[in-house]
Design a protein around this nucleic acid. Structure first.
Lengths: 149, 149
DNA sequence: GAATAATAGATGAAAGTGCATCTATTCTGC
DNA sequence: GCAGAATAGATGCACTTTCATCTATTATTC
């Protein structure tokens, strides 16, 4: 019922590492006058979706956004011309989002900062097998949590 | 310079797992009309500090709070009588925080929800060695990041 | 096929957060 | 011991996030 010592330790470590590194990355982007990290996820997800684009509720699921939160974030990004939206004809409640050329440029600029930082922090774990094992473990947590909804 | 595939995967996994599980836990607490998860950290940290209590800036460091953010959180918690503050005589800029009896009760009630959830999620990783290895890896990330400040 | 439920997305109000700045106090170097 | 730097903590402001609710549309059920 209650967690073991090691289970608690892992949960604490997940939180600390995420919070600490995320902050530093966000701060680094802000310093370069680039948008916050969360925008990157949206841009990248849409860029990979290509011509077809994606709908807000799809982003919401894959990126774990709160609906209202995402709604406003998307508006901000659209206002900055990083995204374009068009009405989705088959369901007139919905809309389709795609990255603009400007969005692609901004994402690339963000990656110039973000990418090296990921490397800098993650390379503290040197062995490939350890990297793989750790992410496999964490992904296991995610999978189980998603399913049980 | 740029991250390897596995480095990126780990970083993504850290984010997903943290965000997803944290949310679910916070939601579970809210459903039971208990305070948010972040309050737990404060209560627990102060409870372990015992009679001596702790000062806000110490909490700030160990729990990774933004100063202004923590300042207001502490006020809220004090207003709810979960904490009590007294002036720190040796440095009149500062103050000492301690948990109240009510604070201890609330923390225990939170733990009844929080504890089993930690177990539920973390127990997806069954082997003790895997648990240990994963948290050791993540802690390595944290240590390096903290030091370089 | 009309009534009801479910879904996509937007939005007002409230709470939380970060940033810059402020006050009060203590520390440092001369 | 005094001027200037550093530190503890609070606070105004702007922005973000959440919660609850709303509108519009589509799905379902009888």
């Amino acid at each position: 019922m209650y967690p073991t010592e090691n289970e608690t330790r892992l949960w604490v470590a997940i939180n600390l590492s995420q919070r600490l590194i995320y902050r530093k990355m966000d701060a680094a982007l802000k310093e370069k006058r680039l948008p916050p990290l969360r925008w990157y996820d949206v841009l990248w997800d849409l860029e990979r979706a290509g011509e077809k684009g994606k709908r807000p509720f799809e982003l919401e699921q894959s990126l774990l956004f709160e609906q209202s939160n995402l709604s406003r974030l998307l508006r901000r990004m659209t206002n900055e011309s990083l995204l374009e939206e068009r009405q989705f004809s088959r369901d007139r409640r919905g809309k389709i989002l795609r990255v603009t050329e400007k969005g692609r440029v901004v994402r690339k600029n963000m990656w110039k900062i973000y990418g090296p930082l990921i490397h800098e922090y993650m390379s503290q774990i040197e062995s490939e097998s350890e990297l793989k094992q750790s992410s496999a473990s964490l992904n296991r947590l995610v999978d189980c949590s998603v399913i049980e909804d």
